[in-house]
Design a protein around this nucleic acid. Structure first.
Length: 173
DNA sequence: CGCAAGATTATT
DNA sequence: ATAATCTTGCGA
């Protein structure tokens, strides 16, 4: 298994592409390690569901920044969600990590992932290309996935930018 | 400054 | 279906 961290080039591509390619990759955080099984893409320019749609704000500014940086936000005052910034600097976009297959359990949902791994605003702005605390490495080679509309949003529900890995069972051995 | 909405989840 | 819970962003 390759331990090399994914490069800046990997993240500096269209968010929909990165979201798809992130499936089957290994997310590492402080000793936790799991296969990414579900993602969603959010694009600033033409995606009303994105935090960055109306231009940069104190919260969304990070989505306009350098790719490969973590973006963590608190949703409903209750749960944290982990995103990775994508595309070139100036083009707002990010990928939400929604599913993670650990060695002993499957974490289904962005809130559960952050809750279980202990990710909060403290992990905001981490550079996944250089950090030894939080990063992503190569993982499963042949990934089958399905595209569906994103969940939990009321705008742009027509965009099929949620991606779910289908062949998890074949791979968790 | 006030207030409504929100990329969720567990519970009823 | 709804509560929990609080930050953010917009309008006044």
């Amino acid at each position: 298994m390759n331990k090399r961290k994914l490069s800046k080039k990997f993240y500096a591509r269209p968010c929909v592409q990165v979201a798809q390619d992130l499936l089957g990759k290994i997310l590492v955080f402080r000793g936790f390690q799991g296969i990414i099984t579900e993602t969603e893409a959010y694009r600033g320019s033409d995606d009303p569901a994105s935090h960055a749609f109306k231009g940069p704000t104190p919260r969304s500014a990070i989505m306009f920044g350098s790719p490969g940086i973590s973006y963590v936000y608190l949703i409903y005052g209750v749960y944290h969600c982990l995103n990775i910034v994508t595309e070139e600097e100036g083009q707002a976009s990010a990928v939400l990590i929604r599913g993670l297959q650990l060695s002993d359990r499957h974490l289904d949902g962005p809130g559960k992932i952050c809750q279980h791994l202990g990710i909060s605003k403290t992990q905001q702005g981490i550079n996944l290309i250089t950090s030894d605390q939080l990063y992503v490495t190569e993982g499963v080679k042949s990934v089958h996935y399905q595209a569906t509309p994103r969940v939990g949003i009321k705008k742009a529900i027509d965009k099929p930018w949620r991606f779910v890995m289908q062949n998890i069972a074949e791979v968790i051995f």
